[in-house]
């Protein structure tokens, strides 16, 4: 692979992988608490549309980001009402959330279609900007969401694995009976996890509309929510591995664009298949060990038994 192509792919991977990473981190927290949200796609759309709308109306992209995060959090709380309070079927509820997200985002974004916004400002450290090979690419010229993406991943890891709260979340996801015996309220913990996950999902959507494309269009997330769900499994529910996963999956998309731009003959569709095929192969390869990696509480949903 030639250097400009490689750089192009890496740069592209970082750009498109960022929203994937946020979405994956959010879903990881939620699944660690024992819940699957198939409607992640809807959360992303809500984030993207809300962020765009608020930015267009207020002129501040930062405000848009905050609104997107809040909207995502609230949407996940609605999901939480269904699956935690009403004990509804998680898969059906997730799909309902997907419809909800598609509809709400379309309504919210409708008045702002075609609006021109100045998105999130980008910043590049001056000592890097001086380098010639960097100047010609998008590398290191990022908005704040990209800059803090990896630190956020580390933060999520730290929260889940080094704090009392995270221990409770993981306990609830593995065995709500044991968590309950330890004096915790599994429902409360799950709501907390859902809210945190929703915040991150909102951020993921915001990055798409406020940085990557600077537009809003119905359905613009184009399946990223489902890729993120696959990514959670692929990275074995671990926030740090999700970084690598997001880069790989984002890179596939970037590679496709780069090859197309160069008139290469490899079909972009084959590359787009990569995330899903990879995830299935990885699931097969792990076999038993993957079953260990998944939070035990997810089994109920995935195996369809009460």
């Amino acid at each position: 692979m030639s250097t400009p192509l490689a750089l192009g792919v890496i740069a592209g991977a970082i750009l498109s992988g960022t929203s994937l990473l946020y979405a994956t981190l959010g879903e990881t927290i939620v699944e660690r608490a024992g819940i699957v949200n198939l409607g992640l796609e809807g959360i992303l759309l809500i984030g993207a549309s809300t962020g765009f709308a608020v930015t267009a109306a207020s002129g501040s992209a930062y405000l848009g980001v905050a609104a997107a995060a809040a909207a995502g959090g609230i949407a996940n709380l609605i999901f939480g009402w269904l699956v935690v309070m009403r004990r509804a079927n998680q898969l059906a509820s997730g799909l309902a959330m997907m419809f909800f997200g598609i509809g709400v985002s379309a309504l919210v974004g409708r008045p702002f279609v075609g609006a021109v916004i100045s998105g999130l400002p980008k910043w590049r450290p001056p000592w890097l900007a001086a380098l010639a090979w960097v100047k010609s690419t998008t590398l290191f010229n990022y908005d704040f969401l990209i800059w803090i993406a990896v630190p956020v991943a580390v933060l999520v890891w730290w929260l889940l694995f080094e704090t009392r709260w995270g221990l409770g979340v993981r306990a609830v996801g593995e065995s709500s009976a044991a968590a309950f015996a330890s004096g915790r309220n599994p429902a409360v913990v799950q709501f907390q996890a859902l809210f945190a996950g929703g915040l991150l999902g909102g951020l993921a959507g915001a990055h798409l509309s406020l940085s990557l494309t600077l537009t809003w269009a119905e359905g613009m997330t184009a399946g990223r929510g489902f890729i993120a769900i696959a990514l959670v499994i692929f990275s074995k529910w671990h926030p740090l591995r999700a970084i690598a996963g997001a880069l790989v999956f984002g890179g596939a998309e970037a590679l496709q664009l780069q090859l197309q731009a160069r008139g290469a003959d490899i079909s972009p569709f084959l590359l787009d298949m990569l995330p899903y095929v990879l995830t299935i192969l990885v699931l097969l390869a792990w076999g038993g060990s993957r079953r260990h990696a998944a939070p035990a509480g997810l089994g109920r949903t995935f195996y369809g038994t009460e």
Partner: peptide
């Protein structure tokens, strides 16, 4: 049309 999706949801 988006209202339909909200309605279904």
């Amino acid at each position: 049309y988006a209202v339909v999706n909200i309605l279904l949801a």
